[in-house]
Design a protein around this nucleic acid. Sequence first.
DNA 1: TGACATAGTGTCAAATTAACACTATCGTAT
DNA 2: ATACGATAGTGTTAATTTGACACTATGTCA
Lengths: 223, 223
Amino acid sequence: MPPYCYDYPHPALTTDITLFTIRDEQLAILLIRRRAEPYQGCWALPGGFVEPDECLEECALRELEEETGISGVYLEQLYTFGKPDRDPRERIISVAYYALAPCEVLSPVAGSDAAEVAWFNLDALPALAFDHQDIIHLAQQRLRAKLDYSTVAFGLMAETFTLGELQKVYETIRGEALDKRNFRKHILALGILAETGASRRVGNHRPAKLYCVAHPGAVHYIR
Amino acid sequence: MPPYCYDYPHPALTTDITLFTIRDEQLAILLIRRRAEPYQGCWALPGGFVEPDECLEECALRELEEETGISGVYLEQLYTFGKPDRDPRERIISVAYYALAPCEVLSPVAGSDAAEVAWFNLDALPALAFDHQDIIHLAQQRLRAKLDYSTVAFGLMAETFTLGELQKVYETIRGEALDKRNFRKHILALGILAETGASRRVGNHRPAKLYCVAHPGAVHYIR
DNA sequence: TGACATAGTGTCAAATTAACACTATCGTAT
DNA sequence: ATACGATAGTGTTAATTTGACACTATGTCA
């Protein structure tokens, strides 16, 4: 008997990416409108088949780039979805990733497999293909949970940002207002932010100091 | 062009299971000695190919049962490993799970693909096949992390147990001694343990009250 | 120069966590 | 029977962390 005795065809393997950003103080994700069957014309997460010589993470980044034109995001594996009937025709396993990016940089462009690309606020999602609704829901849970014990939130910030902006991001994800003084105390106590020296003038009020992440490659976990 | 245009054969899909238990106050995992190439004769995690009509979790439970005779464990998805060269011959994706079980019940029996099954203390692992070393390492990290904010530890306990036994489990996983009074206060404050009324007489000392999990199906998260 | 809008700052009470030591009850050996 | 060994069981207090709370500063614009 050969070592890999396995009589059935292997299931297909894909990655799907839930890319979060903050737009207009709302948590939003990027969806594509499917050009192909099944669920043709339906909105879905960007993603696609894993190629023979790429690792899963590379696949996620490549598919995101191909379908939406977006690259350079923070990416982390979320969960692998593998129910036999999650795709109506052949069996497909999806390794789901979630990604974070500041909205400033991002202008998605519909690529090959996508008829259209658009941001959707999480509280106003359209009908979705496959089990993508579940994936998104899990991704949101994960994001909210990691806010408390990690520094994921910085993945949603631009190169430099004010503490006010950072607080709004936290408030948006947690869905509740935070005390300004406690928030600033907490964040600065992490010791991972550095003042840039510059400040941002916006609106008819006092300019805010701009901060950046002191050691971008550094720890991602708080405590 | 057909909807699923994909020119390459799909990679194979497996699950691998890191089954933890506590033996002699040491954290141990279950390994099998491989009967087949590659890594024939080498120790490896139990696991195997996903069948067409089973979901990933079912596969993990089935493979564990087939190769080691063990069933009825607590199981949770860990991470999916998919580097193209993690298997020397064909590409294999592994959805890794970790499992927990009290050692009392468990008497592993080598099944089909396993020439031998044995427990190994985590600090004395043999050379391992594939990237199973990495999987185990990640599983241990996860277990340690979840100890603080979840009730996973109960997955390692028998039906009933004493607070002293529970504390030893926590101490073993964390690798440090804990204060007895604080520990008991903390655990009882969770409100998920119930006295059974019985107590356990062991050794030449006072018997300890036996506890059980009040609502076994209940929440797995603390706070 | 006054209205407005956000930036920026410190204190104190409450809650949580961490340190700490002795009595109780059993078995066993003398 | 009695002393010893071994683990069970139990509260208090200080230290730390968290959460609530309000005013001044600095810019723009009318």
